[in-house]
């Protein structure tokens, strides 16, 4: 034992192992910083200038990460809710009626996917400015989408979506620069507006003479209306918060 100890301590002394160890630790930190920094610089493909932009990039990254985390959490929780719904006993008539009501309410509020007959309207930016147009461009504006959605509602559509953004009671359609915003999500042309409802009513409401379709075509916008046996409309995937409103007693 003593011999081995002596040999190792001799080895350590002779080769100056201790000092190499210290230098090694320093090299470890240097290599770590170098690698991490190179990765960070190559990750940011667009070299942002100024600290404000750098700050914004970090903020955006954080928010995106947070959003993804929350979305995963939300999906987990909604799965649990789904389970509770399915597990509820069917025997009890009260529960059955509540379930029925819940189904109805979730269709109204837009928190569930729905299918049914309906129509799909596609609005595309036009190419040539027509003489009779009041506008100087042939782009689809937020007001055009809004008009179509409003007309669909008037014709008895039971569920509507614009580019898979479900139109619910609180949905806003508005202009944000080159794109439009629906449910605070950016959507761009071509706009695919899906509506579930009596397809015949809906189509004729669109195609009525001097109606919405005619108006939009006159503005130079491409309008395509198709009737479908089975239209699927996705659920509203945001959150609905009531901060001020409460039930009146």
């Amino acid at each position: 034992m003593e011999k081995i100890k002596n040999v190792t301590s001799d080895f350590i002394k002779k080769h100056n192992i201790v000092s190499y160890l210290f230098i090694g630790i320093a090299m470890f930190f240097l290599a770590l910083m170098l690698a991490a920094q190179m990765k960070a610089v190559s990750d940011t493909t667009e070299v942002a200038q100024g600290k404000r932009e750098a700050q914004l990039i970090d903020d955006l990254r954080n928010i995106q990460n947070k959003y993804n985390d929350l979305k995963v959490k939300y999906e987990d929780k909604s799965k649990i809710v789904e389970e509770y719904k399915n597990n509820a006993s069917n025997n009890d008539s009260l529960i059955a009626s509540m379930k029925e009501e819940q189904k109805q309410l979730s269709i109204i509020s837009g928190v569930t996917d729905v299918v049914g007959e309906g129509i799909i309207i596609t609005l595309t930016d036009g190419e040539n400015v027509t003489d009779s147009s009041l506008r100087t461009d042939t782009l689809v504006h937020d007001s055009d989408v809004l008009t179509v959605v409003n007309e669909l509602k008037a014709a008895g559509a039971e569920a509507i979506s614009v580019n898979d953004q479900r139109i619910i009671a609180g949905s806003a359609i508005r202009c944000v620069g080159p794109v439009i915003q629906v449910n605070y999500q950016k959507v761009a042309a071509p706009f695919v507006i899906k509506a579930v409802g009596n397809a015949q009513y809906l189509e004729s409401a669109m195609n009525i003479k001097n109606g919405v379709a005619d108006l939009l075509k006159e503005l130079g916008i491409g309008v395509k209306i198709t009737r479908e046996k089975e239209v699927k409309i996705l659920k509203f995937d945001g959150t609905i918060n009531f901060k001020t409103a409460r039930l009146a007693e």
Partner: peptide
């Protein structure tokens, strides 16, 4: 040490 540093980096 240098390789370990790069890997952790």
């Amino acid at each position: 040490f240098a390789v370990a540093g790069v890997l952790t980096g």
